[in-house]
């Protein structure tokens, strides 16, 4: 039987393609075009300069630590929200999305104020000899804040649908809670955890607003790559800005590919179970 074709394809597809072309694709092509106009030698000189490389190291290492924190804390938070009932659970569940709803500049000034040496947390911490604001630790905290919801929101639905009989079977076989968690539950959560982790890491690599307030922005020490691209722009060094931004664009596409791969795997896993 021939399916009836619904109307509206030319109009809706036309709008979609024009909008996607003008708003999404054109600017990215312009960036690539600008970066490519540099020539390989100049391009390489800019993206491999000491200051640029230092910014990659700062960005990647801080994103790594922030993601690691979110892996552990996100899993614990998802577990508590799914498995336990306690007063205020729904409010906590809603608050998990605050980092996505709160503008990054607002997050930036409030985290900086909290963790500055005279702040609510910065004061006690500096008494212990730990400086947070204007150090890499501050960058990590800003990154962890802005990407907090990813792991929670990828793990939560999988945890909710976890078949309790699997745990029961392991319990009747005499497994301890810890070994059941490590050998039965964790492997089932791993695909979702990986997907959440890759989203969280990707977001941390590109984050700007929340970080620049707390980072101190010292070249070679607390300067993230996004800020370096911005600084080159303010110095009217457009080719350098294009080159550094293009490195971030490539990193974003790599992370996008990794995330899609992990999500596809996570999905296959969920459906099969």
């Amino acid at each position: 039987m021939k399916r009836r074709v619904l109307p509206g394809l030319p109009l809706s597809l036309g709008i979609t393609l024009v909008y996607a072309a003008i708003i999404i694709v054109l600017p990215l092509i312009a960036l690539v075009f600008k970066a490519a106009s540099l020539g390989p030698a100049d391009y390489w000189r800019i993206i491999s300069s000491d200051r640029a490389v230092a910014s990659y190291v700062v960005t990647i290492s801080c994103a790594f630590v922030a993601t690691l924190f979110n892996l552990v804390f996100g899993l614990a938070l998802a577990w508590v929200l799914v498995r336990y009932r306690f007063p205020g659970r729904r409010i906590v569940d809603a608050l998990v999305d605050l980092p996505f709803a709160l503008p990054t500049a607002v997050a930036g000034i409030s985290l900086t104020t909290l963790f500055a040496v005279n702040g609510w947390f910065g004061g006690p911490l500096s008494a212990l000899g730990i400086k947070v604001a204007y150090t890499p630790l501050g960058i990590m905290i800003a990154m962890a804040f802005t990407s907090l919801p990813f792991v929670v929101r990828t793990v939560q639905p999988v945890l909710e649908e976890l078949d309790p009989t699997l745990e029961e079977a392991a319990q009747t076989l005499g497994g301890s809670d810890l070994s059941i968690f490590a050998r039965v539950v964790l492997p089932l959560l791993t695909p979702a955890l990986l997907a959440g982790v890759s989203l969280s890491f990707a977001r941390s690599l590109g984050e700007f607003g929340a970080i620049i307030f707390i980072a101190g922005n010292q070249p070679f020490e607390t300067e993230i790559t996004a800020l370096l691209a911005f600084i080159r722009l303010e110095e009217y060094d457009y080719p350098a800005s294009a080159a550094i931004a293009s490195v971030m664009l490539i990193a974003a596409f790599v992370m996008l590919a990794v995330t899609n791969l992990l999500q596809a795997r996570a999905l296959r896993y969920t459906v099969r179970n």
Binding site: P27, L28, K34, A226, A229, F230, L233, L249, A252, M255
Partner: peptide, 28 residues
């Protein structure tokens, strides 16, 4: 098309801003 629509999520806002400058800016 789905992938293209999803691209802005993966891209740093700074990269987005710089890209727009290279379309409509004086150097663009």
């Amino acid at each position: 098309l789905l992938i293209v629509i999803e691209i802005p999520f993966s891209i740093s806002p700074i990269v987005a801003g710089v890209s727009y400058l290279f379309v409509y800016g004086l150097q663009g």
